[in-house]
Amino acid sequence: MATESRPTPAISAARPRLVSESLDAWFGERHAVRDVSLTVIEGSVLAIIGPSGCGKSTFLRCLNRMHETVPTARVSGRVLLDGRDIYARGVNAIAVRKHVGMVFQRPTPFPTMSIRDNVAAGLRAVGAHLSRRETDEIVEGALRRTALWDEVKDRLHASALALSGGQQQRLCIARALATSPRVLLLDEPTASLDPASTQSVEQLIRELRGDVTIVIVTHNMQQAARISDRTAFFLLGELVEVAPTETLFTTPADDRTEAYITGRFG
């Protein structure tokens, strides 16, 4: 288990960074997320697993108010980011997203931008008035953290589309990290990658642990076991169980969790 290799001080401090309280989400009439209350500890990695269609991605998209970008989508309940409800009146969804980074299933580099501009794309959106040198510094920092720097430093001005799939996905993570978000949401980030690229992305998540608060949705239980501190199991839109990863995979409290992790369904 990953917990052996590196102590996780964040858990001992146990400061909640992101808390959902009785969160419900709908697509039109379909009730996709049902009454989910869940806490993400600062600096930890929370994995969300469950069979496809269980609402795990929808839940994730509620955490940065992306869910509401789909027509007919609806949310109720509270999501507290460092104690402040992002669904409170007067809160601006766009401002919220600047503090919560997100990476999707497929790599989404912006095709008209160079590698450098891709990483800097979020900085421009948050309205940071940075000099060219400052931007370059942040870009380099973000690329170093995602272990891309050595691979791309000679072609920062080349099109991002020239990178391999795994590199593109790490570029997207770098792009999300460049604005120093409070939480990083990963929606099945390795689903479209080959095994080697998957490994490099997992390695990256392990290295970010402690620094960055991460919520990762995955359909791959082994991946959840490899990289997360805590794991939540979703079924039919409900949160069945959340526990330290080792506990959840060895001694699950709920029969349904046990049924799922032993492969009896899903």
Partner: peptide, 22 residues
């Protein structure tokens, strides 16, 4: 692709900025 729009929105781009720059 819709995914490009979503990526921009998730970065905190407003809709107008997503529409024009992405």
């Amino acid at each position: 692709p819709v995914s490009l729009r979503e990526a921009a929105l998730a970065l905190g781009y407003a809709r107008w900025r997503t529409g024009l720059t992405i």
